[in-house]
Nucleic acid binder design. Structure first.
Length: 257
DNA sequence: ATGGCTGCTTTGAGCAGA
């Protein structure tokens, strides 16, 4: 199964890109989407069904919104859960479902705006509650994948210019520590299970030709539980989608399990 | 030092993103 995560930054705008990817040769079987920015009644269920995919989604207007799409052949989704019971929140940032025995979670971590800002503390609180939630989920679902836009570059090698970003939002020690806290539950960064090119990123700013100059960050991740790590075969980033006309600022990340 | 793009919004300047 090829599992992917992609922050589309508006599914309305990016739907043609998604459909093109799903129809391509190395198309994914399951995709966790973030920043769909669509209310549920506007979710493109029919277009994705035509492409052979089922959908579950938790959306809202303008901001946030997460979804999970998966091939018809994988059967029905079970135990779909919107949000985090440990963190009641109007922002639609978390969605879990079970596909073919695997607990798949689509997560859109808060951006955090700036270190020490109100949104920064919301981000840290959101992650603390996510930790509690995952601790619970892992007991019931030993085969679990946490996929999405974490808005955290875990190490300096995930940053194009570590000195410039040092201590700043997406790279601060408290955020990185919270990321390592998730790993301590028995999760692994699937990207690092395999050799990767240096300067591999999943997000590039729209401004200043950042993508063309490869000035990016690796902030989108798929974390696999120990049971899934043992079946992982390859991982990577679909960089070319960032080069499409009118792209998302994120490229999809993927793992084959 | 600032703003740099993009998508969205009670359509148009202001916000949020990262």
């Amino acid at each position: 199964m090829k599992l992917a995560a992609w922050n589309v930054n508006s599914l309305k705008v990016r739907l043609p890109h998604l459909l093109r990817w799903l129809a391509s040769e190395d198309a994914p079987d399951v995709v966790c989407l973030q920043e769909t920015k669509l209310e549920d009644h506007n979710f493109p269920v029919a277009a994705l069904a035509d492409a052979g995919f089922r959908s579950v989604f938790a959306g809202q207007k303008t901001y946030n919104g997460v979804a999970i799409i998966f091939r018809n052949e994988l059967g029905e989704a079970r135990d779909t859960l919107k949000g985090n019971p440990f963190f009641p929140d109007a922002q639609q940032r978390l969605l879990a479902t079970t596909i073919d025995g695997i607990r798949v979670i689509s997560a859109y971590f808060p951006n955090g705006e700036a270190v020490e800002s109100e949104k920064y503390f919301y981000k840290l609180a959101w992650m603390k509650a996510l930790y509690e939630y995952l601790d619970d989920e892992l007991c019931r679902f030993p085969q679990l994948a946490l996929c999405g836009d974490f808005n955290i570059a875990p190490e300096d090698c995930d940053v194009h210019d570590p000195e410039r970003w040092a201590g700043g939002i997406l790279c601060s020690e408290a955020e990185r520590q919270a990321f390592r806290g998730l790993l301590s539950l028995g999760l692994a960064d699937s990207f690092r299970l395999f050799p990767q090119a240096e300067k591999s990123f999943s997000w590039w700013d729209y401004r200043q030709w950042s993508f063309q100059k490869n000035l990016g960050l690796r902030i989108d991740h798929i974390l696999l539980s120990d049971q899934l790590v043992s079946s992982a075969m390859a991982s990577g980033i679909r960089r070319e989608l960032r080069g499409y006309e009118r792209p998302s600022d994120h490229a999809p990340v993927w793992v084959e399990i």
